[in-house]
Structures are given as structure tokens and as C-alpha cells.
Deep mutational scan, measured.
Amino acid sequence: IRCIGVSNRDFVEGMSGGTWVDVVLEHGGCVTVMAQDKPTVDIELVTTTVSNMAEVRSYCYEASISDMASDSRCPTQGEAYLDKQSDTQYVCKRTLVDRGWGNGCGLFGKGSLVTCAKFTCSKKMTGKSIQPENLEYRIMLSVHGSQHSGMIVNDTGYETDENRAKVEVTPNSPRAEATLGGFGSLGLDCEPRTGLDFSDLYYLTMNNKHWLVHKEWFHDIPLPWHAGADTGTPHWNNKEALVEFKDAHAKRQTVVVLGSQEGAVHTALAGALEAEMDGAKGKLFSGHLKCRLKMDKLRLKGVSYSLCTAAFTFTKVPAETLHGTVTVEVQYAGTDGPCKIPVQMAVDMQTLTPVGRLITANPVITESTENSKMMLELDPPFGDSYIVIGVGDKKITHHWHRSGSTIGKAFEATVRGAKRMAVLGDTAWDFGSVGGVFNSLGKGIHQIFGAAFKSLFGGMSWFSQILIGTLLVWLGLNTKNGSISLTCLALGGVMIFLSTAVSA
């Protein structure tokens, strides 16, 4: 259960009878995928790494000078000259100064003066180019299975845990398959586009800190620079940016070097996208990844198990997540596992009318040892309800109150669905055939309105939902006002479609 501690969480529900669903994975976010007769899966884009970055340009932001020398000439005696002028490691300046009897010249006039100092770069920052084909995306998957609280967001041991898996995709191999043991396998067909235009970005490294910066900004930095990788004795261009020549006297000129420019660069980098280094690879934390999940090989585990009949206890007080759902960790005293956990939410304890829904599909106890633990997640209705676990006299209950409203949740879900469709863009549509167009249209309606429909009408039977949709269509056909007619027709059509397409 990876997503319960992530604030940016998206719930995606598969269409009834569908074998695939489109998701948008982004750094700092987590996606929970639910479908009829399929286990619930949490998917998170953990890291995006980039390798084989080529150094484009380096800037010196802290330097020192040494070996200063000057040469001067009297008027009419030609130009002052130093051998160091031809050495690229030196920074030199030529000027004219007033000369006369007082400073060793027989004539009054302008004399030539040249001053040089050896330039040494102490600290530099480097910009590297990123090729999209060198990106690698690491995705962690977790099935809502027989897990306890100690396994949440624990990325170790996934090789031997059938509840978890790690997959890596690249532009050259965008397809992967996550093996989930008894739950089958989940196929991923990803489109490795981060949403960032790397043709316009460089990877900047300064003092063990890293950013993504725009090329134009990078090339306009007014500091000494050299092109390409460091060859040991780089040729620094624009050395004068960190060196200041003071007022010249008759035979000498003082040279000083400016202080470190790291603070000024940090100020200019305010708002830039931060990154990290992992050995020789860069780690990015921006952008998104679009994936199509193929769920035809994914299956529920323990459908044929019998119900657990022994007593359950709450190991922890049920807690609310950031998303309005409830996490419950229970301990089973029996030894008759594997068995299914009898769990439901009810409005009252007399009729036990089921409300809400299970995020953890078909929760089971897989071990036959005593005191096995299991964590599950529920989506309670707004208002008061009861969490009921167990059967008969051994069942345990917990009162729950959820604040908020169904309308607010439906609106929030619609906005999130619209954002998801905007990110998917043209990849969500198939114009290759008439059937493809209608299929894409259905998927689009489901992406945007599916979660809201589930919130508003999830407790009704599909037949009642179709009746309401048919009534809206009838009202649309018999209303003389054009805008009201079109609105009723659209709402009725969407409702009829979703009542037959969205899983219960």
C-alpha cells in the first residue's frame, strides 16, 4: 500500500470489461488503480535517471590570480610587451599612462603600459546536455494484498515479495511487465516523455548541487567559461569578468580578483528545477510519464477462499488518510488461513446495510499462523458509518465519521480527471477507425466523469442509474429551450454510458 502517505494521489477506475487503462505517473504523486474483478494496485514513479550526459560548457565562479607582471614604455618608444601576453592562462590589459620627467621619461606624453596576471579557477559549475534516449524511469508497484503497516513504502525485498514489484522503462524499451506472483502480471506500455523539453534544458552542477536550467539563461551567464570537458589546462574565455584592473600608474597597475560568485548564482537559480546525482547518473524529480496498463493477466487472489471465522482485533486505531479513506490494521487469532476477511461498512448496526467501498479488493489472510496481521483500506461514505470486521458474535466494529460532501468530492474528481486527460493529450485517442474513435470517446468520458459518477451514484443499482439517464434524455427531447435540451441530452447520455461502463 504505497499511496496512503502521498498527498498527491489519483484514483483511476477501469471500465467494466476493459483490459487496459491509461494513467499519468508523476514525481511526488501516486496512482491507485481499481477495476472490477482485479486486485487494487498502487503505482508510483520513484526516480527518473539520466546517463551519458555530455559537458557543454563550464563557468568559473571563484578564481585566484598570481605571478603579476607589468612592462611600460616612454612616449615614442613603441608598445610595451610581455611574453605572458601569448599565454592563455594569463589575463592581460594594455593601456596608456601619462609619462614625463617625473617618472623617468625625457618627453612628456602618453606611454604604453601592459599588465598580466595568471588566472586560476578555484571553483566552477558545469552544464551538461541531456539526450531523451538516455532517460530511465523506475516504477514501483504494490498490490493491496496481505501486507501490514511495516511494509508500507518499503522498497527492500521486492524481489521475493509477490505484493510488490519494480520495473524500469526507457525510450528504447518502453514496454515492461511486472510479475506479482499469485496476482498474475501487469503489463506497462509507457510513452517516455517527461513533459520537459530537454532540447531547451541543461543539467547544471555547482558545488555538489544540481538544477535543470534553460539553455539561453545558461549561455548568457557573465562569467569566465570554457567549452567542452575539462582537459586539465582549460582555456578560459572572458577571464576579465572576475578580474579587475585598478587605476594605472606610470610603471605598474594593481590587479585584484573578485570574490566568489556562488551567492549571486544561487539567487539567479531561484525557482529552477532541482535535481540530484546518483553516482555518474543524474536524478530528476520533475515531469511525468504516461503509461497504458494492460490488466488482462491480472487476477484476484483468494476468490475461492472461505470466510475467516475466528476473532479479529484492531492492532491500531483506524486512521484517516490524506485522501479521506480509512486504513485499518487487524490481527487474526485463527489458524484456518488462508481465508477471506469479512469486512464491510454499514450505516447502522441493526440492518448492516453496506455503504462505501473497499479500496483493498478481496482482502485475505494468507498465513495459517496465529496472530497474522493484515492492513486494508476503505472508502467510507460522508457522515457517520460503522466499520464491521468478522462474522457472528466475534465481529468487531468501529464508529467512523467522514466530513465533507459527495458533491465536493465529485467536483474534485472531475477536475482531476480533466487534468489527466489534458496530460494524456492525443495519445488517449485513436482515429484509425470508426470503432477506435468511439472507443476513445468512451475512454475520455470515463477518465473525466467516472470518479464523479461513482461518488454521486455508486450506491444505486445499474438499472436505477439507466432509468435516471433515460429520464434526462426524455426531458431533453421534450424541452423547447435549446440549451436546457442539449444539457439534459448530454447528461442523460453520459449517465447511461457510465452506468453500463463503470464497474460497481
Rank of each mutant, 00 (worst) to 15 (best):
Leu96Cys: 04
Val355Met: 08
Leu322Asn: 06
Ser368Gln: 01
Tyr386His: 12
Leu204Gly: 05
Gly14His: 05
Asn478Asp: 09
Ala422Pro: 00
Gln89Glu: 15
Asp67Pro: 00
Arg252Gln: 05
Trp236Pro: 02
Leu107Lys: 04
Asp348Lys: 03
Thr351Ala: 14
Ala504Cys: 12
Leu284Ala: 01
Arg420Asp: 11
Val50Met: 09
Gly469Cys: 14
Val343Ile: 15
Val364Ile: 15
Asn481Phe: 06
Ala178Phe: 05
Gly187Ile: 05
Ser306Cys: 01
Val355Leu: 13
Leu141Asp: 10
Lys394Arg: 15
Ile496Met: 07
Ile389His: 11
Ile389Cys: 14
Glu377Ile: 04
Thr76Ile: 07
Leu258Val: 04
Val423Cys: 03
Leu82Met: 07
Ile139Gly: 01
Leu212Arg: 02
Ala178Cys: 06
Ala227Gly: 12
Gly442Leu: 07
Thr321His: 06
His266Pro: 10
Ala410His: 06
Glu216Trp: 10
Ile359Trp: 06
Gly259Gln: 09
Asp426Asn: 15
Leu477Met: 14
Gln465Lys: 14
Asn362Tyr: 10
Leu498Thr: 03
Trp429His: 10
Leu188Arg: 03
Leu298Cys: 03
Asp336Gln: 13
Gly425Pro: 03
Arg252Lys: 15
Phe449His: 12
Cys30Met: 11
Phe463Gly: 09
Ala229Arg: 09
Asp155Phe: 02
Ile396His: 00
Thr487Asp: 11
Leu298His: 04
Ala451Tyr: 11
Thr366His: 08
Ile4Leu: 07
Thr231Tyr: 04
Asp161Phe: 13
Gln261Ile: 10
Ser403Cys: 00
Val243Glu: 07
Tyr305Phe: 08
Lys124Tyr: 01
Ser142Tyr: 03
Phe245Ile: 14
Val330Phe: 08
Met345Lys: 00
Thr254Glu: 06
Thr231Val: 12
Phe312Ile: 12
Ser464Tyr: 10
Glu244Ser: 12
Trp20Ala: 02
Thr205Met: 13
Ser72Leu: 01
Gly78Tyr: 07
Pro318Thr: 02
Gln89Asn: 11
Ala264Asp: 09
Ser499Thr: 14
Ile43Asn: 07
Val343Gly: 00
Ser403Ala: 09
Ile387Val: 15
Lys301Asn: 03
Gly482His: 11
Gly408Thr: 07
Thr49Asp: 01
Val343Arg: 00
Tyr81Leu: 15
Thr194Cys: 13
His398Leu: 01
Gly109Glu: 06
Leu358Asn: 11
Glu133Asp: 11
Asn362Pro: 04
Ser70Asn: 10
Asp247Arg: 00
Thr49Arg: 15
Lys480Ile: 03
Asn238Asp: 15
Ala165Met: 05
Gly157Lys: 13
Gln350Val: 08
Thr414Gln: 10
Trp236Phe: 11
Leu284Glu: 03
Leu223Lys: 09
Gly29Leu: 15
Gly106Val: 14
Val255Tyr: 00
Gly102Arg: 12
Leu298Gln: 02
Val41Tyr: 08
Gly417His: 11
Gly127Asp: 05
Trp101Phe: 06
Ala268Leu: 09
Leu300Asn: 04
Ser64Met: 06
Pro363Cys: 05
Gln350Leu: 12
Gln261His: 00
Asn478Val: 00
Tyr332His: 12
Val502Tyr: 11
Gly408Trp: 08
Ile341Cys: 09
Gly444Asn: 13
Thr335Ser: 13
Val143Ile: 08
Lys123Asp: 05
Ile468Ala: 14
Val364Pro: 00
Ser455Trp: 13
Leu489Val: 15
Lys166Met: 01
Thr120Pro: 00
Asp189Phe: 06
Thr95Val: 08
Ala310Met: 15
Leu113Lys: 02
Ala275Asp: 01
Tyr90Trp: 12
Lys409Gly: 00
Leu196Pro: 12
Glu26Leu: 02
Asp83Tyr: 06
Gly450Leu: 01
Ile484Ser: 02
Leu82Glu: 05
Val494Tyr: 12
Thr369Ile: 15
Thr205Val: 14
Leu212Val: 13
Met151Tyr: 15
Lys251Tyr: 02
Ala69Gln: 15
Phe463Asp: 08
Gly17Val: 08
Arg57His: 04
Cys488Met: 15
Cys60Ala: 02
His249Ser: 12
Ser485Thr: 15
Ser385Leu: 04
Ala270Thr: 14
Val21Gly: 01
Cys105Asn: 06
